[in-house]
Simulated scan of single mutants.
Amino acid sequence: MIVHHLASENSIIHKFINELRDQSIQKDAQRFRRNIERIGEILAYEISKTLDFSAKSLETPLATYHGKSIADAIVICSVLRAGLPLHNGLLNYFDDAENTFISAFRHQTNTENDFEIVVEYLASPSLEGKTLILADPMLATGQSMVAVLKALKAMGKPKKIHIASVIGATEGVEFIKKHFPEDTTLWIAAIDENLNEKGYIVPGLGDAGDLAFGSKLQH
């Protein structure tokens, strides 16, 4: 797996990461969603550099222009519900992309800190031969991303898989490396070192879904 860690270099992305983590700022849900969306736009721009392009000619009011256009058929898949702002950011740039939505959530098992990943909903076009971008803002243990990959196998084999994430843990990055195709590319804004006993990223930012859309009842 190729990993692009954007926070390893100086760029405007640090401003958006800082605001996402800051408790005093993240209480503004609209701003929180917009900052994730902005990071999605930056990730989309970086991903675009690796795509296939073809020649495109068009008529301006003055002459024929010979340019380029993206040749890849792109499908953006977001993991509900936290992935929606990130999905929007990617879609702002890849506005011709097809869209996939999937649910993947933690279901508590025997003890407070044990859980399994449950996938209950999937709406997707064919992925056969297309460029798939998996969008999930938090890459903690990596189990959700692997569960999503397994569920998507019935939709066809993509030509290429990109993973777009905002904050991840080293453990989660290493986990998906073992389960995704070797030519998968991970685009991630920031990588933190630790997970706590409940499998949440530290320092992280908290629950991205709750911060973006409000708290939920557990079931």
Rank of each mutant, 00 (worst) to 15 (best):
Val119Arg: 05
Ala154Trp: 02
Ser126Phe: 13
Leu149Pro: 00
Thr100Ser: 11
Ile74Gln: 14
Leu91Pro: 00
Pro125Asn: 11
Asn113Pro: 00
Val146Asn: 09
Thr100Trp: 02
His87Ala: 09
Val75Glu: 13
Ile117Asn: 15
Thr109Ser: 09
Ala123Leu: 00
Gly129His: 14
Leu86Arg: 00
Leu122Val: 02
Val118Ser: 05
Leu152Lys: 07
Ala82His: 09
Asp96Met: 14
Ala140Trp: 14
Ala73Thr: 15
Ala123Met: 04
Tyr93Gln: 11
Leu80Cys: 03
Val148Gly: 07
Thr109Trp: 10
Pro125Thr: 04
Glu120Thr: 15
Ala73Pro: 02
Asn92Ile: 01
Pro125Cys: 07
Gly156His: 07
Gly129Arg: 11
Thr100Glu: 03
Ile76Pro: 00
Thr111Asn: 10
Asn113Arg: 13
Ala104Asn: 06
Ala123Glu: 03
Ser126Tyr: 15
Asp114Met: 01
Val146Pro: 00
Pro85Lys: 05
Gly83Trp: 04
Ala154Pro: 00
Gln143Glu: 13
Leu139Lys: 11
Gln108Glu: 07
Asp96Glu: 11
Ala104Phe: 03
Gly89Met: 05
Leu149Ser: 06
Ile133Val: 12
Leu139Pro: 05
Pro137Asp: 08
Asn110Asp: 10
Tyr121Lys: 01
Gly83Ser: 02
His107Met: 12
Ala97Pro: 03
Leu149Glu: 14
Val75Cys: 15
Ile133Tyr: 14
Ala140Ser: 13
Thr100Gln: 02
Val148Leu: 13
Ser124Cys: 08
Thr100Cys: 14
Leu90Ile: 08
Val146Tyr: 12
Pro125Ser: 10
Val79Phe: 02
Thr141Phe: 06
Gly156Asn: 07
Cys77Asp: 03
Thr111Val: 00
Ala97Trp: 10
Ala154Ser: 14
Asn113Trp: 11
Ala147His: 13
Val119Leu: 07
Ser78Val: 00
Tyr121Glu: 02
Met138Arg: 08
Phe115Trp: 12
Asp114Asn: 11
Ala123Cys: 03
Asp136Ile: 03
Asn99Lys: 01
Val148Asn: 06
Ala123Tyr: 04
Asn113Thr: 14
Asn92Gly: 01
Leu90Arg: 11
Ala97Thr: 04
Gln108Phe: 05
Ala135Lys: 14
Thr111Arg: 13
Asp96Gln: 09
Leu152Asn: 02
Asp96Ile: 05
Ile74His: 12
Lys153Asn: 14
Leu132Lys: 10
Leu86Lys: 01
Leu139His: 09
Leu134Lys: 03
Ala154His: 06
Ala147Pro: 04
Leu149Ala: 08
Thr131Ser: 13
Gly129Thr: 05
Ser144Ile: 00
Asp136Phe: 04
Asp114His: 08
Leu152Arg: 05
Thr109Cys: 07
Phe101Cys: 01
Ala154Phe: 03
Leu149Val: 02
Ser144Gly: 09
Thr141Lys: 07
Lys130Phe: 14
Ala147Val: 09
